[in-house]
Write a protein that binds this DNA or RNA. Structure first.
Lengths: 156, 156
DNA sequence: CAACGTGGTTTCATTATGAAACCACGCCAG
DNA sequence: CTGGCGTGGTTTCATAATGAAACCACGTTG
C-alpha cells in the first residue's frame, strides 16, 4: 500500500480536513472527547480499538490541533486528552452527521444514541442551511466560487 | 493489514456513517457530485485519484445508497453517477465541514473554494445549533441519551 | 481496419490496520 | 523491599488497502 494522499495543500475546505478526520476512528475519538472522556484507557474501552491505532490517532489529533494533552485531573502522573477550541469547533459537523445518520441509516425500530438538549431532554433542532439574508437554501441554490486570499490580488 | 472495522451495527449515529464516508476520498466524490460531476472520467480528473481507487469508492457509495447510476444524459452507452435523496441529505454535513475548515484550517492569505448563495453570491450563513424551542446550544448544553426503538419497549 | 476515448480491471510494491505480545513506569499491599 | 496491578503506551506480525501503472473491453470515428 503506497502512502495515502494528503490534502494538506488543497484549496478546498472539504478536502483539507480529511488529513485530520478522514479515517475510520478520529471522529469517534472526537465524539468521545465531547462526551467527556479524557484518558487513553477510557477511549480504548469505549472504542474497542487496538492500542497502537488509538495511540496513532490521538497523536495525529494532537498534532492537528484538535486535541491537546493536559496533566491528569486526579493528580496522577498521567496525561489526559481534551478538545481545543479548534476541536470544539467540530461540534456542528458531528451534529450534522448525527442528523443525517438518524434520518437515513436507522430504522424506527432501532436503538440509537441521541443528542439532546440537557435542560429539556429534547432532541437538538434540525440544522438549517440559510443564505446570509435568511433564505432557506437547497444544494441547487448554492455554488462554489474561488475566493482569493486577502494578500493576493492577482488574477490567474 | 487486517480488515478495517465496520461500524455497521453501531447504535451511534456518528459511528454508523463511517462505513460510507470514513475514508480519504468518498466525501470528495460526494462534493463533486453536488457540483454536478457525473461521469467516471470527470471524477477522476477532478480528484486526480487512481482509477482502481475511484472505482472501488464509487461502487461503495452506490452500494450505500448515496449515489446511483443512470444512463448517460448524452445518449452514449455509458452510465453516470448521481446523488440519491440520501446522498443529497449529506449537504449539511458538507456545509458544516466547510465552515469548520474555513475557520480553522485556512489563513486569510490563502485562496479557498467558497460555498455561496447562487442568487446573491453571499457566503452561506453560519450554521447554528439550537434546541427544539430555539435556544442556542453549545456542546456543554447537550448530552447523549439512548433512545430505544419504537418496536422495542423493553428495559435493559 | 486502426486509433481514440471511455470505463474500468489487474498487477505490483508499499503503507496502514488490527491482534496480540511486550515494555516502562508508578503505586500499593503483603 | 518485592511482586502484582493498573496505566499508557510500543513492537511484532500477518493481512488488507493504497496508489502507480499497465492492461483490457467496448463503442465510435476517420
Amino acid at each position: 500500500m503506497v502512502k495515502r494522499t494528503s490534502h494538506k495543500g488543497a484549496n478546498c475546505p472539504v478536502a483539507r480536513p480529511l488529513d485530520a478526520i478522514g479515517d475510520g476512528w478520529s471522529l469517534l475519538i472526537i465524539r468521545d472527547a465531547f462526551d467527556g472522556l479524557r484518558r487513553f484507557g477510557q477511549f480504548q474501552k469505549s472504542l474497542g480499538v487496538a492500542k497502537n491505532i488509538l495511540s496513532a490517532r490521538l497523536n495525529n489529533l494532537v498534532e492537528q490541533g484538535i486535541l491537546r494533552t493536559v496533566p491528569a485531573s486526579d493528580g496522577s502522573p498521567h496525561q489526559e486528552y481534551v478538545l481545543t477550541d479548534k476541536g470544539c469547533g467540530l461540534f456542528p459537523v458531528l451534529v450534522a452527521l448525527r442528523q443525517w445518520s438518524e434520518e437515513y441509516l436507522f430504522e424506527p425500530s432501532e436503538t440509537r444514541a441521541r443528542l439532546v438538549d440537557r435542560e429539556r431532554g429534547q432532541p437538538v433542532a434540525w440544522l438549517e442551511i440559510r443564505s446570509a439574508d435568511g433564505r432557506a437554501l437547497s444544494p441547487e441554490d448554492t455554488m462554489i466560487v474561488m475566493q482569493h486570499g486577502s494578500n493576493n490580488a492577482r488574477r490567474l
